[in-house]
């Protein structure tokens, strides 16, 4: 069964016919070619596929595209801003991840920066409990997390 949906992704409107069993992740990656969002598990276990839906972080691998009608979606590609002259301005969280060495292989990074962005939208001074709440379902096998935690704390300071 096919369904028509209208969605806004990274400030662009799309009208799409999707299969009712297609996940949001599938549509983003295979239909819109936004491959910055990664599939690590396909089961909502690792967080690599996180995107913002109406500002809330969700796992795009276990949410159906058919349910996204009318939603505003932001992927990792939409976190940086492109100025009028074409220059790219990274978000504070993206900058902190670079500066603190919070990235190694980079495969989990899109999920972490998306979730961290949502956290910093909610509060400019996150407690460790709040950091845990937003990041606990995100897995990274490379960094041991300390640099990621530091990057989030530093980005919070920058945005305050």
């Amino acid at each position: 069964m096919s369904v028509e949906i209208k969605i806004n992704v990274n400030n662009r409107d799309y009208r799409l016919i999707v299969d009712e069993e297609d996940t949001l992740l599938y549509v983003l990656r295979e239909r819109l070619h936004l491959t910055g969002t990664k599939e690590g598990c396909g089961n909502g276990e690792c967080g690599a596929c996180a995107v913002l839906v109406d500002g809330e972080p969700v796992r795009s691998c276990i949410i159906l595209a058919a349910e996204m009608n009318g939603k505003n979606i932001v992927t990792v590609e939409g976190l940086s801003k492109v100025e009028k002259d074409g220059t790219v301005k990274l978000s504070p969280i993206q900058e902190s991840f670079i500066e603190e060495g919070a990235i190694q292989c980079g495969f989990c990074t899109p999920g972490f920066v998306v979730a961290s962005s949502a956290l910093l939208e909610k509060t400019k001074d996150p407690t460790d409990e709040e950091i845990e709440e937003y990041l606990s379902g995100h897995l990274c096998r490379c960094t041991g997390y300390a640099t990621i935690l530091k990057a989030v704390r530093k980005a919070a300071e920058k945005t305050r």
Binding site: T75, L79, L90, G106
Partner: peptide, 23 residues
């Protein structure tokens, strides 16, 4: 020197291409 990794910008913006991203 602790220079930030050169591939970090590609990775933090979602531009870095991994095997599954090749279409």
């Amino acid at each position: 020197k602790s220079v930030p990794r050169f591939d970090a910008r590609e990775k933090v913006t979602g531009e870095a291409v991994y095997i599954a991203d090749i279409q």
